[in-house]
């Protein structure tokens, strides 16, 4: 029984740690965008994406309890596989579609329509 109480004390600490990290990592990007404290857009986007990625890792470690050894490693393996697929899908889509976009004819009709709006 004492082992269990010890376990839950550690579990509380882990959840609280994850929560505090998450709050910090959420408040910073919201504050930067909403208060206008940072105005340089590329810097802002770097802050948002960097902290977002870190917060996702925090969630995976402290809330989803992903470890390399869990389920004989199959859990981590499936995560690596999924992340790989998602990266291929996202990077591939953006890359290919950006190229297509560049090679498209300009949409004259649309531009004319917008110009003639009342």
């Amino acid at each position: 029984m004492s082992a269990e109480t010890h376990d839950s004390a550690k579990a509380y600490r882990d959840y609280l740690k994850g929560f505090i990290f998450s709050v910090i990592l959420t408040v910073i990007p919201f504050y930067c965008v909403m208060s206008g404290a940072v105005t340089d857009v590329p810097t802002l986007i770097a802050i948002i994406f960097g902290l977002g990625a870190i917060q996702m890792l925090v969630h995976v470690v402290y809330f989803l309890h992903l470890t390399v050894s869990a389920e004989d490693g199959w859990q981590a393996m499936s995560v690596v596989f999924t992340v790989m697929l998602v990266v291929i899908i996202m990077a591939g889509s953006i890359w290919v579609m950006a190229h297509l976009h560049e090679n498209m004819m300009p949409a004259h009709d649309q531009i004319e329509r917008i110009k003639n709006l009342p």
């Binding site: 269990e4 109480t5 376990d7 839950s8 579990a11 509380y12 959840y15 609280l16 994850g18 929560f19 998450s22 709050v23 959420t26 919201f30 965008v33 909403m34 969630h59 809330f63």
Partner: peptide
């Protein structure tokens, strides 16, 4: 409206940690 999104984020994050407490109580 970012202020509403901030609130929604807060609710979801809070619900995450309270679920964690629930799981701890389940183990106990």
């Amino acid at each position: 409206e970012l202020d509403k999104i901030a609130w929604a984020t807060a609710w979801l994050l809070l619900s995450s940690i309270t679920y964690g407490f629930s799981v701890i109580k389940m183990h106990e």
